[in-house]
Design a protein around this nucleic acid. Structure first.
Lengths: 227, 227
DNA sequence: TGATGTGAAAGCGTTCACAGCG
DNA sequence: CGCTGTGAACGCTTTCACATCA
């Protein structure tokens, strides 16, 4: 039987600890706050912040409390202060260097995705093994041969990689990225990859899995309506 | 104070109920099982199924138990039976008709994504408002004008839609899809959309949010290593 | 008055430990 | 003997209810 050595459900952050569940909602809060900020809104109440996200107002207050953020009774929270605090915790109060591996349809789409730069993620290089793609420019970014991965990373500050290669290649590419000094991988290949060592983070996104989740929700709702 | 009328944390499925947390792991199990099946593996133990997913063996047994699936002591579970049972619960034991709205970079990538068809999701039509894209064929699928959405849906069995339009257009498009009879929406616009009524499901995927999650994990691990 | 902040309770989910079965 | 199935314990998360403060 495999047992975890140290479950450690609480995450150290600064001088306090923030519950997992709270962390998972932070990016959601931030997106709402940025939208409010663009609309010129300066303060927000817990109910207003939770509303569109489907969250209870008391849950929002608990989350913000866990971040060490205080609001003003009768008024609410400062949109600006809240955004700053969340960005700091998420690590997006600075910019990140990112490389992309795999310039298929999805890879090309990711190069063109404006949302990354808006949150401080700079796509610095793109790699592929396909001779037909190497040397081509995709939206201003030149596609380099994968062999040049290590030498390219040496010269630049790159912490993250996005992997959009076939599932059969993913594990090898990820291992190679970690060896080359990358700290975190966003994996789009439909295969479960675990970080190989401490200091290595991975986030898996499987688009087909998201459609399955949707299909389940539809079936569930249909069943609920029926009775 | 807004309060939920009926939290209903348990989901009816067949004649039993399945915990939320279990549901969220089902697509993961299915992917592992399909991989094992392709490799010719016929049975799997709870430890083997949980291993690559980072899950405890007892958790796997609890999950499968909640689905009403039994294994054989000393042997394990049937890969085939397990796959079937999970597909049935997820609703992917049949095929789904899907339309795509928004043929930007991401939309084009989604048309080319093979994983959808493999899980029974058939992309039947693609729509955009851009005159430059309408009429073009993208990977064999003709781009139709968004005006033709309702008339096109009338003639076909389409239950799901994938929305890959700018955030500013997303709410309007989603409302329109629901009115046109769509049951579920997979939304890639970076904005929180809630289903407008019962019988309407939505799943939100925000690629920039996933990178934020990754950045957080990297910062956290760095802090952990430090002490 | 209208919001926050927070003990306390209730609800879930995970893990442990081990009986039981093939 | 090896693995499943599952009470029971534990810990996390959410929700309630209300004191508190500007």
């Amino acid at each position: 039987m495999k047992r975890k050595l140290n479950p450690s459900k609480l995450l150290p952050a600064g001088d306090s600890t923030i519950p997992r569940a709270t962390i998972s909602r932070l990016a959601l809060y931030l997106r709402e706050l940025q939208q409010m900020s663009r609309a010129g809104q300066q303060t927000v109440r817990s109910q207003g912040l939770g509303g569109t996200l489907g969250l209870d107002d008391s849950q929002v207050r608990r989350d913000l409390g866990a971040l060490g953020i205080s609001g003003r009774p009768g008024v609410g929270y400062s949109v600006r202060d809240l955004s700053k605090a969340i960005k700091k915790i998420l690590g997006t109060d600075r910019t990140w260097g990112v490389v992309l591996i795999g310039i298929g349809h999805l890879g090309q789409a990711l190069i063109g995705y404006r949302g990354f730069a808006e949150q401080g993620f700079n796509l610095l290089a793109a790699f592929d093994v396909d001779e037909g793609k190497i040397g081509r420019k995709v939206l201003g970014l030149k596609v380099l041969p994968l062999e040049r991965l290590e030498s390219t990373l040496l010269g630049q500050e790159v912490q993250l990689a996005i992997v959009a290669v076939p599932a059969s290649e993913a594990q090898e590419v990820v291992d190679r990225l970690y060896r080359a000094g990358i700290s975190g991988v966003l994996n789009f290949a439909p295969i479960s990859l675990r970080p190989t060592g401490i200091g290595h983070a991975i986030v898996n996104v499987d688009l087909a899995m998201e459609l399955q989740r949707l299909a389940f929700d539809v079936v569930k709702r249909a069943a609920e309506e029926e009775q």
